[in-house]
Amino acid sequence: MSGDSRPPELRSRSSVLAELLCLTGLALVAFVWIIPLQVSGGGLGLDPGFLPRLCAGAIGLLVLADGLQRLLRGQPVEVYPAGWSALARVGGLAVLGAVVLEFAGIAAAALVTIPVGMLILGERRPILIAATTALVAGLLFLFQR
């Protein structure tokens, strides 16, 4: 519902090609190396590696077909509008929360993660930060008990 009328930026052919090679390569590695290494023969009934290999092969072919269709037909692929900052911040926050959770428990995880999360997302109102942290950590503390 925004009024932004600028045409979307399109991805370069090399980036689409890189995505195609990366994903097809992963599917190929899974098919010829990871699955045979991680699945031993069952001896009874159907080979346990049958479905995983079938899936890996199918994914590789589908990704290849999709990538080639985009490249050969020149189908435009829009650039994703955001950078990687959100992933880095929220991902980092989740890792911090997991570490605190492991060593100090549920309530402590809230006590540390919520103010840090609010600060890294740009929240600067101290009362709001303190109130939110105290409320959620308090509720989790009661829940834990």
């Binding site: 929220v90 926050l93 989740a94 929360g97 997991a98 959770l101 549920i106 995880a109 809230a110 993660t113 919520i114 103010p115 840090v116 999360g117 609010m118 997302l121 740009g122 929240e123 709001l128 939110t132 959620v136 989790l140």
Partner: peptide, 13 residues
């Protein structure tokens, strides 16, 4: 800015 950190913690818990 309040919802995202709170939900992140709830997901982990």
């Amino acid at each position: 800015t309040v919802i995202i950190p709170v939900v992140t913690v709830l997901c982990l818990v």
